[in-house]
């Protein structure tokens, strides 16, 4: 059974449609990431599931129950906010105990639950402190412990890592993923950071302009992007898109390599590549340049790992190639993915 399901959900703020007819169902125990640029409606969708926004149309189901019109406290969800939203006048203990108060539990039971939750996040020694005496990472753990203490049926996270510094974010990501797997609670996670999404998600929901563009595993959305938006939103640098005669050909910068690096037995598509500019990022070299003239938007990027010692210089021309099984095709009009192989020879007519 789907733990969280939304059907044809719409949210309008005045004339602006923030969420525009979204259908989505999570699987039990799944880590589902909502990914998209800012303003794509992902946070609004999460807030509707939490009950903080009432949908303009459509329904929200949690554990099979239609909760669309219920207030947040009757939904048995827990949410971690981007700001963590800790109660500044309460100690860590009281913060974590707060969700248990409405449950009319015994004092001893509350204590036990708080200890259990705090120890799970390794913050047992901070219980007497107040939020302002904690570091960013500690606050984030308190927010998670507070969300977890009630053992909700769904865990909603709104960019919980975005206030941490880069180093802490990586370790927090790892911890979060391991914890979610251990507890097995269904989690919806909103982020605009594709690295977080790829790393954490069992499945990723890519959204843009209030609509879902693709739902799939990180591998699927990256390697078999449903449309040109998904293809260019994911990946750094994004997928190269070349257009000709109503067809868009896409390939990832890391698959666009000097032809010499592919063995003779690999079926590749060759391009003449006029290099204009290079960036050395340490682990990778980014090489910018243009391919044959026949293509509109012929500016492309190649990404060479530092292991590749092949010498490339600006203002020189090389032959680069992409394996044919790494080519993606999209309809130039709709932007949607086209299945099947296309004879590229006919397209770029070399």
């Amino acid at each position: 059974m789907a733990i969280v399901e939304v059907r044809q959900i719409v949210k309008k703020f005045g004339d602006v449609t923030a969420v525009d007819g979204v259908d989505l169902a999570s699987r039990d125990g799944e880590f589902l990431v909502l990914l998209g640029p800012s303003g794509c409606g992902k946070t609004t969708l999460l807030r509707m599931i939490a009950g903080l926004e009432i949908p303009s149309a459509g329904h929200v189901f949690i554990e099979g129950r239609d909760v669309s019109q219920l207030p947040p406290r009757q939904r048995n969800v827990a949410m971690v906010f981007q700001s963590y939203a800790l109660y500044p006048h309460m100690t860590v203990f009281k913060n974590i105990a707060f969700p248990l108060k409405p449950l009319k539990m015994q004092r001893e039971d509350i204590r036990e639950k708080v200890m259990w939750s705090a120890s799970m996040f390794g913050i047992g020694h901070l219980l007497a402190r107040r939020p302002r005496e904690l570091s960013g990472g500690e606050r984030q753990r308190v927010a998670l412990a507070r969300a977890m203490v009630r053992e909700p049926s769904v865990f909603l996270l709104d960019e919980p890592l975005s206030n941490l510094d880069a180093k802490l974010r990586t370790s927090a990501r790892e911890e979060l993923e391991q914890l979610q797997k251990r507890i097995g609670i269904t989690t919806l996670y909103v982020t605009h950071d594709q690295v977080e999404a790829m790393g954490l998600g069992d499945r990723i929901v890519v959204m843009n302009e209030g609509r879902v563009r693709q739902v799939g595993t990180p591998h699927e959305v990256y390697h078999r992007s449903a449309d040109t938006f998904v293809a260019t939103f994911l990946g750094s640098p994004p997928m190269n898109l070349l257009e000709k005669d109503g067809l868009v050909i896409g390939f990832r910068p890391e698959n666009f390599l000097p032809v010499q690096l592919y063995g003779d037995d690999r079926d590749v598509e060759r391009f003449r590549f006029d290099v204009t500019w290079m960036e050395d990022l340490g682990s990778d070299r980014l090489i910018y340049g243009n391919v044959e003239r026949e293509f509109a938007h012929r500016h492309v990027v190649a990404k060479l790992s530092a292991n590749v010692t092949f010498s490339v210089e600006p203002k020189e021309s090389y032959t680069f190639a992409v394996p044919k099984d790494k080519l993606n095709f999209f309809d130039a009009g709709t932007g949607l993915r086209l299945e099947g192989r296309f004879a590229l020879r006919d397209v770029h007519g070399a």
Partner: peptide, 19 residues
Amino acid sequence: DILEAAEVDGAGFRQRLFS
């Protein structure tokens, strides 16, 4: 955020007001 967090944490109007 703090008021919304309290709402999601299950607090009714009275608990939100007094706590």
